[in-house]
Design a protein around this nucleic acid. Structure first.
Lengths: 244, 244
DNA sequence: TAGTGGTCTAGACCACCCA
DNA sequence: GGGTGGTCTAGACCACTAC
């Protein structure tokens, strides 16, 4: 049970939108109605609604109401910070995860990672390579680096399941934000090993540095996809620069 | 001048962060300090700070303060909804815009566009193709479709300058949100014409449907980049699914 | 213990939309 | 004019951090 009223309202309404109770372009109950329905103050309702708006579920129209703009065809939970297991479950996909490598490496051997995670030369990292396989075909290769001292008990079994679940539920840490970069790169030797011969031999590569809620970076992720099967979907808002 | 106090505070603080007054990992004045500094209520300060947080400038830490997490190296204004002219100005880049085509077409001849913009068969569209050229080399090709009835007076001169400026300043419309999809695709014949021979002959393609603040879609944009020179940078937050 | 951010309230006034 | 969302306030209580 959430103690937070506004989060409860947010979660209830997202669920209702996803279930079709409020279809595309319909109008949510007015703020005052929601105040009565949930027995909270108007600012609390508004907090829930602004979350819905900034996450692309609704658009609020002055004088009219909150219009549902969520559209299954357009939205796809990729631009959010979400674990592979969660994506899979939310889309009812059935990939198999194969842990190809699970080992300890030195930060200084991976300068990009070391710099992104702000580590000293002698810090140790878990390096985990996982293939996401569907019908015997590798769809995604995830290469992850985690700071060992933060999670000394990480194991291959956990990597097989969900590392995010482990971090949040077992370690009690809160994953908060990330910077991502998407690029297009030719296959390297490892890619041929993991994906097999493919035409074209190009990968769409998503690199991200993921941070905890105290701003510490804890994960460096490189996620490789077959370039011709890759699609990244994003929702963005224009920063209101309005005067008047 | 903004009437909005919280927007003024947000804009002031972003400017100060960009100017280096509050460097990476420094701590902003506390909410109570900001209340005094701007002579507003605490909720107003908090509204400005949550905007800063959701746009990736700061992370708020309970009991400590607001830490600046904006880092020039990581951030890049691509994931926001922003016009090419604005990007150019904010980065001090100097591309030349060449209007390759400026014509009227029928919605029914472009079914994807027609569907995305929810148009009838006989609606007319402005189709605009523009190359963004730097040192004689085409860096980006923008293919845009605008609903003609919304902006009957659009002209080649406007396309040469900034269509967004025209829409917002001249027509008084407010551009609000968009759905984007990024894919990697082999060059088609037009791409060879615009980019010339390039190795590899792949384009990073960003397709977006842009909406006004009353939720009407008004623009379908296809933005093509040389795949090997393309980098999309994004900031994302994990939806707090916390209980307790 | 003092200071910080997180949540919530009740109420005010405004601008906008529509019948 | 009645309903809708937008902004702002003053104040309350809580949880967390740091010393």
């Amino acid at each position: 049970m959430n103690r937070n009223k506004y989060l409860t309202i947010y979660q209830t309404i997202t669920r209702e939108i996803l279930e079709g109770k409020y279809p595309y372009q319909s109008i949510l109950p007015s703020e005052n109605k929601l105040v009565e329905m949930y027995d909270v103050s108007r600012e609390t309702v508004r907090k829930a609604l602004s979350l819905l708006q900034s996450n692309g579920y609704i658009q609020k129209l002055k004088g009219k109401g909150s219009v549902v703009i969520f559209n299954e065809a357009n939205h796809f939970p990729v631009s959010q910070l979400i674990s592979f297991k969660e994506i899979q479950e939310s889309l009812n996909l059935h990939y198999e995860t194969i842990v190809e490598r699970f080992e300890v490496v030195s930060a200084k051997d991976f300068p990009h990672v070391q710099q992104a995670l702000k580590l000293g030369d002698y810090e140790k990292l878990w390096k985990v390579v996982r293939c996401r396989v569907e019908n015997g075909k590798t769809a995604i290769v995830d290469i992850d680096y985690f700071i060992q001292s933060l999670m000394p008990a990480l194991s291959e079994e956990v990597a097989q399941q969900s590392i995010y679940e482990y971090i949040e539920d077992r370690l009690g840490l809160t994953i908060s934000f990330s910077n991502k970069a998407i690029t297009f790169e030719p296959f390297d030797d490892d890619d041929f090993d993991y994906f097999g011969e493919t035409n074209p031999p190009y990968a769409a590569v998503v690199r991200s540095v993921v941070h905890l809620d105290d701003t510490r970076p804890f994960q460096y992720n490189v996620s490789k996809h077959r370039a011709n099967e890759f699609k990244f979907v994003d929702f963005s808002r224009r920063i209101s620069a309005q005067d008047e």
